[in-house]
Design a protein around this nucleic acid. Structure first.
Length: 321
DNA sequence: TCATGGTAATGTATCCAGGA
DNA sequence: TCCTGGATACATTACCATGA
């Protein structure tokens, strides 16, 4: 191949074609006309001695060679972008960008409204999109730049993914204020639920993959006990509504339980046994480590979490191991 | 310093293939 | 048959090197 025949604009064209799979849309993406992109593609084809993209109907399909070049080319462009960005003075007030975060509805309800309000005053040009955890594999979504950050329990991820702890999320047990069994047992709000009652009453479980057991069941299993999970729902919001309108118990993050008790006819109780306290972490692609806007966003999330008192709530939880 | 010519990038017009 | 979108031919423009 002839390196002299390649310039940065051709690399941009290649990247745009990979993303759009259309010469016209690739041109629109990078501000070139369709013929200009077509000609650029032609120059790339000659320089690399490969068709790179072949037409299949109204789709430009990358060849195996183009596929193999995709990620290194994207990484190189990002690195170039990072070099030029870091050379500029970063001013959040000037930022015009949409950040995409992913996590449980727990975050979309409790964290996003104050975070968005906070950022609206500092960076009016910034918008947010929040995707549900069920959207897909965190590594893949970070790799493909579909999301900027994920807020999740500890994940088994590749070393190119960076992360930082946000807070610990101990469990509290919630039940409807009018729950007959709890009332008849004489348990006051905030007290520890007896093991017998805990195992006897039906439970709602927040389960993103349809699994009918969680950390609470693992803790029970260790002491030879079982509870009855009668309902598995994908969102905490649905869990708390089911609890408020039924005779269920549910183990939910303490921070969420506090919110639920203020907003709905729901009371919080201590679990009858220690349940492993999950750490909630923020994950992002390592290529954004030093990118000023991304670093600023991460700091804003950390500060918003601190302002919500999540760390305090975690400290208050006494059921960790 | 300026005129000239070569080269490359890009735009316009047009053709053609494929899908609905 | 019409519409969409990629490819191609040709014209225009910008940039650069060279020489007077």
């Amino acid at each position: 191949m002839n390196l002299n025949a390649l310039d940065l604009n051709l690399v941009r064209v290649f990247d745009a074609l990979l993303r759009e799979r259309s010469v016209t849309r690739a041109g629109e993406r990078i501000g070139l006309s369709q013929p200009a992109v077509s000609a650029a593609l032609n120059r790339l084809r000659h320089a690399l001695n490969d068709q790179l993209f072949v037409r299949r109907g109204n789709d430009m399909v990358p060849t195996p060679r183009a596929e193999s070049m995709a990620e290194p080319v994207r990484a190189a462009l990002r690195e170039i972008e990072r070099v030029f960005q870091s050379a500029e003075k970063f001013d959040p007030a000037e930022l015009d960008r949409t950040f995409t975060l992913m996590g449980a509805d727990f975050f979309s309800m409790l964290l996003m409204p104050p975070l968005a309000a906070r950022i609206a005053t500092l960076a009016p040009g910034v918008s947010f999109r929040f995707l549900d955890s069920a959207r897909g594999d965190v590594s893949r979504l970070l790799q493909e730049d579909e999301i900027d950050a994920a807020l999740e329990r500890p994940l088994d991820v590749a070393d190119w993914i960076s992360s930082t702890p946000l807070f610990h999320s101990p469990f509290a047990i919630i039940a409807a204020r009018g729950n007959t069994a709890v009332r008849q047992a004489g348990i006051a709000e905030g007290e520890r639920l007896p093991m017998e009652l805990f195992c006897e009453l039906p439970h709602v479980l927040r389960s993103i993959d349809g699994s009918m057991s969680g950390s609470t069941d693992e803790a029970l299993d260790r002491i030879g006990r079982k509870r009855r999970v009668s309902l598995a729902l994908p969102h905490f919001q649905a869990v708390v509504l089911a609890v408020a309108n039924g005779n269920y118990l549910a183990a939910v993050p303490r921070q969420f339980a506090v919110w639920a008790a203020k907003s709905l006819p729901v009371a919080t109780y201590e679990p009858p046994l220690p349940i492993a306290v999950p750490e909630i972490r923020m994950y992002w692609h390592g290529r954004h480590d030093d990118e000023p806007p991304h670093r600023w966003l991460r700091n804003q999330i950390l500060e918003a979490v601190a302002a919500l008192g999540f760390r305090d709530a975690a400290d208050a939880g006494g059921t960790g191991d």
